[in-house]
Design a binder for these strands. Sequence first.
DNA 1: TTGTAGGCGTTATCAG
DNA 2: CTGATAACGCCTACAA
Lengths: 315, 315
Amino acid sequence: MVNLADVARQAHVSKMTVSRVINHPNQVSDEVRDLVNQAIKAVGYQPNRIAKALVNQQNYVIQFIVLEDIATVEPNYAILLLEIAEVLNQKGYTLEISTILEPNSHVDGLIVSGWRDSDLERLSAINVPMVLYGQAPTWYDLPYVDVNNRMGTSLATTHLIEAGYKKVIYIGMTMALPFVWEREQGYLETMAKHHLVSRTYDVSNHSHDAEKLIQNIIAHLPKNTGIVCATDRIALGVVRALKAQSQIPENYGVVGFDGVFIDQITSPKLTTIKQPFRQLANTLVSNLLNQLHHSELKMELIQPRLVKRDSTRQV
Amino acid sequence: MVNLADVARQAHVSKMTVSRVINHPNQVSDEVRDLVNQAIKAVGYQPNRIAKALVNQQNYVIQFIVLEDIATVEPNYAILLLEIAEVLNQKGYTLEISTILEPNSHVDGLIVSGWRDSDLERLSAINVPMVLYGQAPTWYDLPYVDVNNRMGTSLATTHLIEAGYKKVIYIGMTMALPFVWEREQGYLETMAKHHLVSRTYDVSNHSHDAEKLIQNIIAHLPKNTGIVCATDRIALGVVRALKAQSQIPENYGVVGFDGVFIDQITSPKLTTIKQPFRQLANTLVSNLLNQLHHSELKMELIQPRLVKRDSTRQV
DNA sequence: TTGTAGGCGTTATCAG
DNA sequence: CTGATAACGCCTACAA
């Protein structure tokens, strides 16, 4: 393993000078800097993270904690994880993945996802810098990053109204999670703003349940109805139930939420509210690193995007 | 941060004795060992990974490299990743995720996934212990772990035959990847063994293409046909095309492959060949660690499982 | 069985 | 602007 000493020898300077060229280049004279840089290339030097970590009392490790059962949580994670890993790697950090909350470890920061309200107490007791994925109640004062769920369903509702669907209903989830509430509110507010009568239904977040719901209520669903769904999974069931009569998008318009994977495999392809995972990952990471370096606590909401596809009329 | 010295002071012994109690307990007298263990608990000592890594010239970091475009590769990864992370964490290793092949890094081992034939040359030039996810040509001598793809489609084919479907066809993929070939072979061999005439089609790995294929050939598809699909994604399209006439599983039987997520959201639910991800993760990790510790190179094939659900007749 | 010295590769600090 | 020294926390090698 080639180290600082090797470079120093090659460049006929001390180890410290080499170290400075790397970490504080402007404290070194131009000539020496060039000399050292050449030497670095010549011997193929790469800094040793471990040694650096030891002396700096930092691990350069960020832990991504998944508190919910992955198997049920579908594809979202893979993509978010990869994005975060990439951003972190670029900044010299390592992403460690964990499924348990074990604060004793040597990590510099935590990104916590899939938490429930009941985890919040425990979370706020841990004194490692952290950022939550998902909007948390403000009284815990825990920094979070989330997509603006309310804006998302608002976008969806507006789109359906503008596309000319006379009636617009909402199919939400039975889970008691903040984002579930936010998504419903986005629909309700937008309907109110347009002086329209709102109507909501709740199902578990499974396509088959949504499918059944539609079959049950189809008799009462007038043609020219728009359906805002709390998730793509629900939308999938709705589309399937409606597909038989191939009435999409003429008689029924369907909008999903999430924009990961499922939206692509439905037929017709889903109009959906897309979570901007790349941006989410970037924000999550920079939020956390800002805490590490400047100790700012921030709550951030990212804007989602409406992706128009074939399950709604083109306006 | 509490360290060896703190424990030593507390127990009135030297740092080395404490270190020995942790790493070579049988080199220490019983009394001293108990004393030290108490002290460790008392002060809440946790070994510092970083320092250990520095002196041992190990990072305890395993890199998981994803060489293909994640967005297109669907949910499989999230679950595999989490499983691997868990296993590794238990053994004191950290999982680092990366999307680029950059061998210069300070990692102890590599788990490589999503590679193509063209990556193999480069891969075998890297002299860091590694294990591939996916069966590789033997002449590269690269250790790999994979599900037994051939056995998988064989299981699927046998199931359809035993369920009494008269004709059994195969819908494969156009990609020139080893596992694609293996899956097709599993079908062909099994058909031959039963003295049945085989018939294969190829589509890209998208549900919509599979759907179109079925629509095109449905006229030539006699009732009582079984369809072995190379992936759940393809099966999804097939099921959708056949659903209209709701002829599943009476007139047509469909079996998918992978058993992650998609199989759950089809209607009817898919009979499929399930990749045992937990076991895959365990094998991947132990294969790699065996290389690190005992430098054994191994190629391992894991048996998949047939999960019978509603897209085939019950036997 | 236990302890001492030295070093892993890096950087902060202080002296020149 | 540059260099020597000590330290981060741990472990191997050797000594007692």
